[in-house]
Design a protein around this nucleic acid. Structure first.
Length: 784
DNA sequence: TAAAGAAAGTTTTTT
DNA sequence: ACTTTCTTTA
């Protein structure tokens, strides 16, 4: 297996890249410009360590920020090593899942009453809990917004401030902050009572564990002897601390980053981590990767011209030997709908020339995605959408996950409140209020209180009591199911419990009786959930736990189909990806850059870096667009071109707009040497005039759209007609070697069939999606 | 208690 | 526009 390194291996790399691969020992800082091949370097480095240096794969750890990046990395390494064996691959993990892994093993060594069976609260759970705390403490939600409070608490936690320290800052100065402090305190207590950790806690507890328990630090220092960190410019102080502690012994820490691509300052990322890396780790070797292999010269020039306007920047020279390429396309649309339509038609045009070219549409905010979905669907283009509402964020999926959480930990009050009356089972507000009140009195969890209330109903009627009894029976049943499955190692513990959580809670029946298309879609999602659970079946009760953890930590990677014709996503989620054809849309003042960052120079610079990241995703074709007006909160607002458009060299742009655009005006006057401020004023004047005419034209379009009409359902992948689960006679027809059709994945080849009857598991290979394990009964497969 | 209707707040980016 | 929360009614 060590013959991996064909002679090509190192010759695929340039001199700096090779140096970065070979410098395996000691701290290494790789400053890698956009498109300079950093993923390739990391992958080669890992392969080199394993195949040439004979480092066991389990001694290697690669950390990324997103699951998408982790998947990508894993695949690259796998390809290089030419291995199918999962066990011979190193651990490639996000910060958060690494922490979960460590905490599930060693959290109890911290002796702070948390157990290793903790529940993870994602941001939504956190906000729910905080909202409750706000109410219980008697504050108005208008006074303390739950969202704002959550983010204030989160950043306090990341700074290492406990509730006392947080409130101490301002107790007599800022009343509101003091109130937040009280909420923070209560929130922490509640988390503890529920044995729950939020996203921040995952990092905090891990750092504390590594710092305070020498035995644990020793263990992981010995385990992970070679550590790589991707996107190092985005690490925050906790993540830095984690890295420092875990590499204390080996000092084999390799980080890759690019200050120009730092776009997560708002989430606590500390750019000084990368700027001061050499100070933090002595004897650091620094390597710069400045040759870009991705983009055309023109694209780099335009991107460079924009980011050049940042003051806080060391500055570096990115060069390429790629061809110059065509100019960057520019289009001014009447409104958001017209913008989307134009982008779709442009993609169609490109695909006529090059049938399999992949396109990305990048926008600033998720809310912009809707019109593009619509436009892609009308143009008959298949698309991926990343972020926004992910599978695991759908209401019905979260409900079932809440039942599963309760099966493992009935004291999880957030989960309990979520599902105690969904589907409706006669436990109304009155009853819940009463339980909550008494739980507070007795200092018991809601779950424990339910049993007390059943024995001593006091002011609750018999209807409520019997409803509570049936709820208790359901949860107890799920719990015993989860536990017994783990003991007798039956064939499909995890999917069994998931199925029970869907059926025996009455959830399925409730949806079925709704008889609407929407409910039908929800049922399909739940079937998908069962299918997802199958992958965890081999691991018993720990599998169930992992399945639940996964649902909390994997928010966006839905089904990212790598070679879908079109991918829609925010500029943020595009980081690390590349596409031959890229559209950056909604380049309007107040949208991109976002208005929230208008007041602060540093924040504006972050927006500019974001624009830079977006532009440098493009390999060959880049288009930038903006609309003259768009709806914000349902109100039509006029919008001006983004200042970033102004920063792009005019002669590198090609105006594709119909009629006279903002750019044609700018170009017409470009030979006059306007001073920046003057220039802006002129542009505004022009834009002001246009709105009037645009309004009338848009009205025309609206009328026309109304006639064209027809809004399809909002879910891309749900088939219009739900296929019935295959009848038993058809069932036997589906065997290895035959083809099936799936509503979401399309046509696929059946590879394997396990188990008997309707609940047989099928392994099916879907082109473009890979292998999926499906439960026959739930997958809604048809013979194809 | 549950369903239907009215009012109000919401959107920056993500693990 | 869209979703969540409050209010009314059966």
């Amino acid at each position: 297996m060590h013959s991996l390194v064909d002679s090509e291996f190192l010759s695929q790399l340039n001199e700096q890249q090779r140096e970065a691969v070979l410098a395996t020992e000691g701290p290494l800082l790789i400053l890698a410009g956009a498109g300079s091949g950093k993923t390739r370097v990391i992958a080669h480095r890992i392969a080199y360590l394993i195949a040439e240096k004979n480092i066991p794969s389990w001694n290697i750890l690669a950390v990324t920020f997103t699951n998408k990046a982790a998947d990508e990395m894993r695949q690259r390494v796998q390809r290089l090593l030419r291995t199918q064996e999962r066990s011979s691959l190193p651990l490639v993990s996000t910060f958060h899942s690494l922490c979960v892994r460590i905490l599930r093993q060693d959290l109890e060594k911290l002796n702070d009453k948390y157990t290793r069976r903790f529940t993870i609260y994602d941001q939504d759970d956190s906000i729910r809990l905080i909202k409750q705390c706000i109410r219980e403490l008697g504050y108005e939600e208008k006074y303390l917004g739950p969202r704002a409070t959550q983010s204030a608490i989160s950043s306090a936690k990341n700074r290492g401030e406990d509730p006392t320290a947080f409130a101490a800052h301002a107790e007599y100065v800022d009343e509101r902050r003091a109130a937040m402090g009280a909420v923070y305190k209560m929130y922490e207590d509640r988390l503890h009572a529920n044995n729950a950790l939020d996203f921040d806690d995952l990092l905090i507890k891990t750092v504390r564990l590594l710092r305070d328990v020498p035995e644990v630090r020793e263990k992981y220092n010995n385990k992970f002897r070679y550590i790589l960190v991707d996107e190092y410019q985005d690490t925050n102080s906790l993540q830095f601390e984690l890295i420092r502690l875990i590499t204390e012994k080996s000092k084999n820490i390799c980080v890759v980053g690019d200050e120009d691509q730092s776009i997560y300052k708002w989430r606590g990322a500390d750019i000084s981590n990368i700027l001061n890396f050499e100070k933090h780790f002595s004897n650091t070797k620094t390597i710069r990767l400045e040759q870009n292999y991705r983009s055309t010269q023109t694209i780099l020039d335009v991107a460079g011209a924009v980011v050049k306007n940042n003051l806080e920047r060391k500055g570096k020279t990115l060069w390429t030997s790629n061809p110059r390429g065509g100019r960057v396309g520019y289009y001014q649309a009447f409104d958001a709908e017209a913008e989307a339509r134009w982008v779709a038609s442009k993609i169609v045009e490109h695909r006529r020339d090059e049938f399999d070219i992949r396109a990305a549409v990048l926008y600033r905010t998720n809310s912009q995605s809707r019109v593009f979905e619509e436009a892609m669907r009308r143009a008959g283009l298949q698309y991926n959408i990343i972020g926004g509402f992910s599978f695991y964020e759908r209401m019905e999926v979260r409900d079932i996950i809440a039942y599963l959480k309760l099966a493992l930990n009935p004291n999880d009050s957030i989960a309990l409140q979520r599902v105690i009356n969904s589907p409706p089972r006669g436990i109304g507000k009155q009853t819940i209020d009463e339980i909550e009140r008494r739980a507070r009195d007795y200092e018991l969890s809601l779950w424990e209180t339910i049993s007390v209330v059943i024995d001593q109903p006091e002011n609750l009627g018999s209807r409520a009591i019997s409803a509570l009894k049936s709820f208790r029976r359901i949860i107890n049943h799920l719990t015993s199911l989860a536990e017994s499955e783990s003991e007798n190692q039956s064939t499909s513990p995890v999917s069994d419990v998931v199925r029970a959580a869907i059926i025996e809670t009455g959830y399925e029946n409730a949806l079925r009786s709704e008889r609407t298309d929407e409910a039908e879609g929800r049922l399909e999602n739940l079937q998908e959930l069962v299918n997802a659970a199958v992958d965890y079946d081999e691991q018993g009760i720990e599998g169930l736990r992992e399945f639940i953890d996964h649902s909390a930590l994997v928010s966006d990677q839905d089904d990212y189909k790598r070679d879908a014709p079109v991918t829609l996503m925010t500029a943020h989620s595009a980081k690390g990806l590349e596409f031959p054809l890229v559209f950056i849309v909604g380049l309007e003042d107040g949208l991109f850059p976002h208005s929230r960052s208008a007041t602060d120079r540093a924040e504006l610079e972050e927006e500019r870096r974001l624009a830079y990241v977006a532009m440098t995703r493009a390999e060959r074709y880049l288009y930038v667009t903006h609309a003259m007006k768009r709806r914000v909160y349902g109100e039509e607002l006029a919008s001006e071109p983004s200042p970033f458009l102004n920063e792009m060299p005019i002669d590198l742009l090609e105006d594709l707009s119909l009629g006279k655009s903002w750019l044609s005006f700018a170009r017409g006057s470009s030979d006059i040497d306007y001073e920046q401020g003057e220039y802006k004023k002129e542009r505004k004047k022009y834009a002001g005039k246009t709105y009037d005419s645009a309004d009338s034209i848009a009205e025309f379009f609206k009328q026309r759209n109304r006639q064209m009409g027809q809004t399809a359902g909002s879910l891309p992948n749900i088939s219009n007609k739900h296929s019935q689960p295959t009848s038993s006679s058809a069932t036997s027809d589906i065997k290895p070697g035959s083809y099936v059709k799936h509503s979401k994945y399309g046509r696929g080849l059946v590879l394997r069939r396990e188990g008997a009857g309707e609940s047989a598991k099928l392994t099916v290979s879907f082109p473009g999606y890979g292998q999926k394990k499906l439960v026959e009964k739930y997958a809604g497969l048809e013979k194809a």
